[in-house]
Amino acid sequence: MVELIVFALMAAASLAGGVTVIRARNPVYSAMGLLATLFSMAVLYVLQLAHFVAAVQVIVYAGAVMTLFLFVIMLIGVDKDENTAETIPHQRRLAMAIGLIAIGLGTALVARGRFSWVPLVDTPASAAETNGTVQALAEPMFTDWVLAFEATALLLTVAAAGAIALASTRKPIISRVPSSPAVSPSRRAERGVGGSGQEGRGGHPVLPPAAGDTRAGS
């Protein structure tokens, strides 16, 4: 009973978060929607006794990845209107149609109760088997899956090095501050003259592209 209530709440929250991600005009609201979805996912993992995965999901995804997203959103600026030209004719209408068909299929599954295709083998033995505590996960991690473990460790190191290489440049900081952001005449008149060069479109301050690194060579 408790599981049903929690599942219903978290499913609603994650779906609401997902819809916010695709519908919000402002990317920061999309990021908040994704955060809601990630939290709901973590609670759903706990419901399925995957405790370690839930904790790692919050630490890595909600704590680190989403912070990185928010940083980049603040860096890039949020108010440029999206280009609504479509590369494939009727792209948006087709996409909405396919999406609604997919969502309709899912709803039909729910309504007809067909998702009992996958039964729950709910014996105490199976609950103990799948209890995802750290101790239970550690043993396969370092015996059966150790190669994948080492490979992902190497992958993380390479990704970090690659990100640093991509994001760093050699020019001094001052010359990279944009002098006059591309602002439409109506917006410029509305803001008046003389906003500092640091304001992006729509008045939200954006960081110069090199914000975050302190001094060259420090």
């Binding site: 599981e3 049903l4 599942f7 499913a11 994650s14 779906l15 997902g18 979805t37 759903l44 419901l47 399925q48 997919a102 969502i103 899912g106 599954l109 729910v110 067909r114 998702f115 009992s116 295709w117 996958v118 039964p119 729950l120 709910d122």
Partner: peptide
């Protein structure tokens, strides 16, 4: 009873 099928359906929707 919340079976794994429920979770998979939610995952498909997401």
């Amino acid at each position: 009873v919340v079976t794994p099928g429920w979770y998979m359906t939610l995952a498909a929707l997401l």
